[in-house]
Amino acid sequence: MKRVYVNEEWCLGCHLCEYYCAFQNSGESDMVKAFGRDEKPVSRIRVEDVDGEDGIHFAVSCRHCDDPQCVKGCITGALSIKDGVISVNEDKCIGCCTCVLSCPYGAIVIDEGKAIKKCDLCVKNGNGEPACVANCPNRAIVFEERG
């Protein structure tokens, strides 16, 4: 199955993936408008940075594990896995954050007072390619099949 992978060697730490992710999931058609509201849209991908000339940057998002701890631990059944893609049913999520604690990658995002947010590979809102992949300026984030 195709997954989102980050080639750390090429990640520049520009953080644009976060903004494109948040925008893509905001439902808005204009990025300026999406970020113009008081309540900012939330990104499902997060860039980790160690700054400096020899700095390290890499983006982290859901790995869509074959044996996901988050789904196992979800107390309301809001998280489910279908065709390898783990997604959240926001109507069922009560925001208990058990999944946030159990995710070994720290890839599940808390959206204060709301259902948790996580990457669903843009299957609901994308054009076949996740927004973080399509908009990475250095092709550090790729969407591909790996062994």
């Binding site: 520049l12 730490g13 520009c14 953080h15 644009l16 976060e18 903004y19 990025m31 300026v32 970020f35 113009g36």
Partner: peptide, 10 residues
């Protein structure tokens, strides 16, 4: 400007 800071980092 959405203050994403990409210009600053780049």
């Amino acid at each position: 400007c959405i203050k994403c800071g990409a210009c600053m980092r780049q």
